[in-house]
Structure formats: structure tokens, C-alpha cells
Design a protein around this nucleic acid. Structure first.
Lengths: 348, 348
DNA sequence: TCGTTTTACTAAATCGATTTAGTAAAACGA
DNA sequence: TCGTTTTACTAAATCGATTTAGTAAAACGA
């Protein structure tokens, strides 16, 4: 088993007696109107024959383009993010790009570390779900303008940037109205304690509709770190205990809903008779739950498509048109039994 | 906003009047016993001061090492694989490696495409979950010995390779015995139609125990592509209809179990009264299901740790000790209500 | 016809590191 | 004391592409 060295452009040059310049032009489709048909054909045939593929590292070193995109998600093992990741991956590969994934865990320090790591590793673009309190760093990154930057799932008011987000305000408004329309008066809101836009807008949409309808704002905000823990569940438990009037719960994320469902089960509260449930983000768990849980589903395919295509477009155009790409997509309310109207005589 | 070029080793060389050779030695910790303390300190201080980071692309071009690992999973959006991915990612980063993920969808052609894509993109290692019928390609890849290759979740008998797998035979044996011990006589098996080792071993373990106990083998195998479809569910439905004696079902994967649970719901069969359920792979869905579903849980953290540390070790040792790394980990049976003993008088 | 333009190419520099093959001076050693 | 070894460094080659700055020959044009 000989270790055969990979063939290089120089080998082809020697073999065919044609300069590497000419060969490079042909490989990169810059041969039109410059190189004769015969030479182009000769080189292309030879490349085909020996299966030559240019060394991407050398190309990156020379051109400064690495054909690499970093997707910095909140948590790549969260079904929402991993579904997005998978769809993007395929389109990226088709376009000759590779994606590197990482998870911030919604921690500023971790995001900063990852950013530092990749900034000096010749990456072409960042698709970022910024954690809490990361605004200044994002602004700096975008201002440096060294890579294309696409912000996902959240956005900032204070400066221009490219982003793809759900219309969280409209979705939350719609969700709250729907619960009220279904006869639930005392809707409680379980959200995240966080300054990122979806969190704020989901709460805001809820509060607006409640105020419009002369209802009280009954909400609890759980810190990101506590969502999946006993502490988080305890907070939801206390919230429900403190507000016995609540006949309906709107959860701001799928993780909150899962902790909420566990809590409701422990409290032996029946869904939807004792309390109806509606949550953001669909998961197969919600469809299979007893009873099936109503959701505001995010258009995963569409989000992933906009994200990756938008990013690729930025890269194509050398991102001179930067900071102008904005997509706000609609959520879809999927009604299941957990939020269905309950006949009047049923009550705790 | 000036575009300031990144500082290079040459800039340092000029600035300090020290050759790039010396600086390179210092950066790469090869300065011991070669370069004077004063010079080392001078260079290190300067590097610290200006925040110099070597250009990784240039390093890759020169050394042939890219510090990149490709993780080719069956489906990166499957919770099992995304959980593994996330754990590996962190350890890889800590060690200066980045991971590129991709999904084969269990399709040979797709895996081949991806392999081709990465083989000539200077990747240091592959962690692969090979799809069906990919044995020859895997053998070839390993024989070429250009990258470290770690096989995950499955293995081959015919040639030596590094792998990390679950002890599927023992787990399946244990699971089947447990169901029999719990009073279920007619255990049915819902598996994948596939030639990969976990599938075969899970079926085999089931069959062995059934035979030992003088019970009939009642199994159905669903093609990978159909698992999440109506066609797949129809096959499970028909299987149950054809075998009305079945009082218990063992599912070979979490996806099969989800399709199975949907089917059982449609058929209005009660768990565990009409049919008990046990499945491979834990998911939060199973814990929250009504009733909670018993599982054979794979040790995700441990698997991820062995995979990435094993791979990093291969890379450290220039993978000369290749094809000797084998880890077979134990599954854990988690008992929940879906497989609990049912009093004798209950029957369909 | 002869200066200019176009065509079809190439030599050499370059991206930014590592590594090979050295050297001058100091230290050693019998 | 003087040949050898050690110490502390460096110049130049190299990885494999792209790009800059050219050139010789052919075609053109008045």
C-alpha cells in the first residue's frame, strides 16, 4: 500500500506542459475569451481522467474564502435548532459550503469564547442566535464587517443587521386571543426571564391582549438555566398555587411547556378541564401527549431556507448589501385538545 | 473604519528582528533547549501584547492537519444523534478541534457523496454511522488510512476497525427476558429491515430468548424510509391485527416506538393492559407519555465521551495504533408503567 | 506598411505558516 | 591548544493554489 500523494496543479502543469496560471483559469471558469478551446478541452479532459480536485486549504489561504459557515445555536440538541440545522446543512453542502455548529447555552461567556475561536479561523459567515446580553458584541462583530453575519430567532432595534425571526408579537397576540375566544378568561403566561426579543414580544403580545380585554396580567418568568430543573418546576408550581383563578396557560417555549406539563401532572390538574394549555414550538411530544397539546408552530423549513439562502446571497454579493436582509415569518396555530373549549359546568 | 490586516508571523519577525523560524519554534513549544529564555520571553510578550493568533489555514496547508473532525450521523435532527453531537462538540472545542456534522439519512449514495466531499478537504478524522450496505466503502476508507476513522453505533465482523457501540445483543436479551418475567408471554418485536449490526443484534437477542422459552418469534421489520410514514404505521397495524395473541411489544428504535404508540392509540389498545410496551432509546416523550414508556436507555454521555476521546487519542498518536479501539457499552433498562405487570384477570 | 490592439498564453509573487539545512560563536575536553 | 560538540539562532524551501504583471505572435487598420 503506497501512500500516493494527491495530484496538484503543478503536476498537471508539468504533465501537459501548460502553465499553472492557465490551468487555474480553466478550473475557475475564467478561461472564456482568454484561452483557446483546444487547451481548455485538453486540461478538462486530463482533470476528469485523473480526478483532480483543487486543494481547498490552499485556495482558502490564497483567496481568504473558506466556504465555511458557523451556526451558533442556543442549543444544538434542542429539537427546534437541530431541525433547522439539518435543513440548512443540506442546502449549504449543495452550494459547496460546510457548516460548523456550536451551542451557546444562552451564555454570554460561551458565545464570546466561540466567537473568538472562529473569528481567527477564516470563517466566511456567522449565523448566530445571540444569548442574553450579547448586543454590544453583535454590534461590534457586524461593524467589523469581516464575515457575513445573519442573526436568527431574535433581533435588535438599535442597529442594522440581517435577521430571520418569527413574528413573535403577532403570534403571541393571536394565541392569547384564541384562548380568550375559547372561553378561558384567566390566561396565565409562563415565559423566560430574558431580554432577547422573542421573549419580550411573546410576553408583550400576551399582556396587550389581556389589557385590551380588561384581564389581569398573570405571568411568571423563569431564568433560562432553571427551565429544565426542579427549581424551575417549583416556580411554575408556586405560580399556579398563587393564582388559583388561572384556567389556561400559555407557555413561551417548548422547554417551558414540558416542565409545565410535568408540573400539571404532579398537581393532578386535568387538561383542558382544569387548565387549558397552549405553547410555542411544536414537537412530536405535544402531538402524542394525552391530551394532545395545542401549539404555535414555527415554520422550520421556511426559517432554515431563508437563513441559509440569505446567508449564501450575502456571500455571493461579497456582502456589500449587508444589514438589509430581514425576514419575519408567521407562526401557525395548531389546535389540539389541550386548548379546546370546555363546557361551562366543568370547573375545579 | 480601516480594514486592518491581521498580523502575521512575518510582521512579528520584522518588528522584533527575530527570524520566523525562531518565532515558530516558540509558538509551537519547540523552543525548549534551543532558544534562550530572553528571546522566548520577548516573543511571548509581544504575541500577548498584539494578540497574535497563527493563521490556521496556513498551518493546515503546511502540516496537513486541519484540526477538523467530520461526524456523519444517520440523522443529526434525531434526538439521540443530536445529544451525542452536542457532547462531542464541547470536548472537541476544548481540544482545539472543530466538528462538521452531516446526515446520511441512512442512504448509501448520500454517505458516498459526503465522503467524497470531505476526503479531499483535508479532514483529520471521520466519526461515522455507516448506512446500510456501506461496508465495502468503510473498509476502503479505513484501508486508505489517510484519516482516523471511528465507527459509531454499529460495527463489522469482517475487518478491524475502531468503534463505539451499545451492547445490543445483551440489551435485547435482557429486555425480552424482563418482559417474559413480567408475565407477558407473547412478546412481539418491531424492528428495522436493515443489515446493520444493532438491528440484527436486537432482533437476534429477542429471538434467542423467545426460543429458549419455547415461545414463537413474532416480529415485523420496517424499512428505514417508512418508519415515520403512514405505510410504516400500516405495517405495524397489520402486524398486530395478524397476531392478536401479542400482549407485549418490544420496539427496536425510538422512531419505531413513536409510530407504534400512534398506531396503538388509533387502535384504542390500552398500555399496558392490552399490550405492554418497551423500546430502545430514551426520549423525554417516553417519560411524559401516558402511561410513561419503559426504555432501554443508551448511555449518551458515555458514548459521546468514548467517541470523541477515542478519536482524539487516535489523532494524538498519529493513528498508528489504529483499528484497535473498541468500546461496547451497556444499556440501562428503565422501568416505567408501560411494561408493568398486569393482574391476570385483565385481557382483551 | 507599420504602429496598435487583441489573443493566448506564462513567470514569478503571493497567501502565512512550518521545516530543512544550515552557521557563527561559545563551551568543552584531552 | 585546537579539534569537536553544543548552543542559539537564521535563510530559504515548502505546502498548493491564485493573481499580478507581463510577453510573443497574430490580427487589425488607415
Amino acid at each position: 500500500m503506497k501512500k500516493k500523494r494527491k495530484i496538484s496543479i503543478k503536476d498537471i502543469s508539468k504533465e501537459l506542459g501548460i502553465s499553472t496560471t492557465t490551468i487555474s483559469f480553466i478550473i475557475n471558469n475564467k478561461a472564456k475569451n482568454r484561452i483557446s478551446k483546444e487547451v481548455i478541452e485538453k486540461v478538462e479532459d486530463y482533470i476528469e481522467k485523473v480526478g483532480y480536485k483543487p486543494n481547498t486549504t490552499a485556495q482558502t489561504l490564497r483567496t481568504g474564502k473558506s466556504k465555511t459557515i458557523v451556526f451558533m445555536a442556543e442549543d444544538i440538541s434542542d429539537p427546534f435548532f437541530s431541525a433547522i440545522a439539518k435543513e440548512m446543512e443540506e442546502i449549504a453542502f449543495e452550494n459547496g459550503y460546510k457548516i460548523i455548529y456550536c451551542s451557546t447555552e444562552n451564555k454570554k461567556e460561551r458565545a464570546l469564547e466561540l466567537l473568538d475561536l472562529f473569528k481567527d479561523r477564516q470563517v466566511d459567515a456567522f449565523i448566530i442566535t445571540p444569548p442574553e446580553g450579547f448586543k454590544d458584541e453583535m454590534e461590534k462583530l457586524i461593524r467589523e464587517n469581516k464575515q457575513a453575519v445573519m442573526v436568527f430567532d431574535r433581533y435588535y432595534d438599535d442597529f442594522e443587521h440581517n435577521y430571520v425571526v418569527l413574528d413573535n408579537l403577532a403570534s403571541s397576540t393571536r394565541a392569547t386571543r384564541y384562548l380568550l375566544d375559547n372561553g378561558f378568561q384567566n390566561v396565565g403566561f409562563v415565559g423566560l426571564k430574558s431580554d432577547i426579543s422573542p421573549t419580550l414580544e411573546r410576553l408583550q403580545g400576551y399582556q396587550q391582549v389581556m389589557a385590551e380585554n380588561g384581564q389581569k396580567d398573570r405571568s411568571v418568568l423563569i431564568p433560562f438555566d432553571e427551565v429544565k430543573t426542579l427549581t424551575g418546576r417549583k416556580k411554575i408550581y408556586d405560580f399556579i398555587k398563587r393564582n388559583p383563578q388561572i384556567d389556561s396557560l400559555l407557555f413561551a417555549t417548548n422547554s417551558l411547556a414540558i416542565s409545565g406539563l410535568k408540573t400539571l401532572k404532579e398537581m393532578s390538574l386535568k387538561i383542558p378541564e382544569d387548565v387549558s394549555v397552549l405553547t410555542f414550538d411544536d414537537r412530536d411530544l405535544f402531538e402524542l401527549y394525552s391530551p394532545p397539546i395545542s401549539v404555535i408552530s414555527q415554520p422550520v423549513s421556511q426559517l432554515a431556507n431563508e437563513l441559509i439562502k440569505g446567508t449564501l446571497n450575502l456571500l455571493e454579493s461579497d456582502f456589500k448589501e449587508s444589514s438589509k436582509f430581514r425576514k419575519v415569518l408567521k407562526g401557525q396555530l395548531i389546535e389540539r385538545i389541550s386548548s379546546s373549549r370546555v363546557s361551562e359546568n366543568n370547573s375545579i
